[in-house]
């Protein structure tokens, strides 16, 4: 598998405090990578650094193109989709207008498939189809999460960064969401970097895991290996991962 996203020596600071201390990892084509770790590990900051919504030091390359000196809009145009915590929907626009913004963001190569892809998204998230003319702000938290992910996917990114997708979602919704990600990884060849505090969930769908703690990578490996490592679970992943293995 070839590297779609490559992160080398990434450092980030808020004010005078460095919160990510020079980390290296790759995401390969069609791969789902779980970025796991306790609260404050730096997961959200790493995603923001990749999408250039926070300033960082180090090198991030997407399909061999460096993002240094580029703004967040340019990085998005390179093929990085980012679903931030808090969803980031356009509350006053309708569901359909939110989805159209995703279609407008896609590259020329995918434009002629727009209608078919929109239909597919609505098939995957039927609730969005029911509320196409409703303002996004009127949707429930789970529905907004689906809308944010569907919108990001309609842009046909090469790499999708998703921050805490399970936050506030019912377990059944989360399962459906993760199932969708697995399908699209195969069908659309999108690579996914998933930052999720609930390690059990993310390890269950990921191919590989990057374990972060205190702004450093403490382990990288196949997700099954991380899920089975009692030491890692106890040290960094909390009770959720413990439960994953004991079940």
């Amino acid at each position: 598998m070839s590297g779609v996203l490559s992160v080398t020596g990434l450092r980030a600071r808020y004010g005078g405090v460095e919160v990510v201390h020079g980390i290296d990892f790759d995401v390969h084509e069609g791969e789902i990578v779980a970025l796991v770790g306790p609260n404050g590990a730096g997961k959200t900051t790493v995603l923001r650094g990749i999408s250039r919504t926070v300033r960082t030091q180090g090198t991030v390359t997407l399909l061999g193109v460096g993002t240094h000196g580029k703004d967040a809009a340019s990085v998005a145009r390179l093929g990085v989709g980012h679903v931030p915590q808090g969803r980031g929907t356009f509350a006053d626009l309708t569901v359909l207008q939110n989805l159209r913004l995703g279609l407008l963001a896609r590259g020329r190569a995918h434009r002629r498939h727009g209608d078919a892809d929109l239909t597919r998204m609505i098939d995957m998230f039927p609730v969005l189809g029911e509320f196409l003319s409703r303002p996004a702000g009127a949707l429930s938290g789970g529905q907004q999460q689906m809308l944010a992910i569907a919108r990001a996917l309609l842009a046909r990114p090469r790499v999708l960064l998703i921050d805490e997708p399970s936050l506030g979602l019912a377990p059944v919704t989360t399962s459906m969401l993760f199932r969708t990600l697995r399908e699209l990884r195969s069908d659309w060849g999108v690579s996914v970097l998933l930052a999720e505090q609930n390690a059990r969930l993310s390890l269950s769908i990921a191919d590989r895991a990057v374990v972060l703690a205190g702004g450093l990578i403490v382990h990288t490996g196949p997700s099954a290996e991380v899920a089975e490592s009692g030491e890692l679970r106890r040290a960094y992943l909390g009770s959720a991962a413990e439960q994953a293995v004991t079940r």
Partner: peptide, 23 residues
């Protein structure tokens, strides 16, 4: 128009608009 929709998106939530490649 797409341009009109992008403009409304920026007015509502510029932070999210940027993530869709809108300047």
């Amino acid at each position: 128009t797409g341009l009109g929709l992008r403009m409304k998106a920026v007015a509502i939530n510029p932070g999210s608009a940027v993530l869709l490649g809108i300047r």
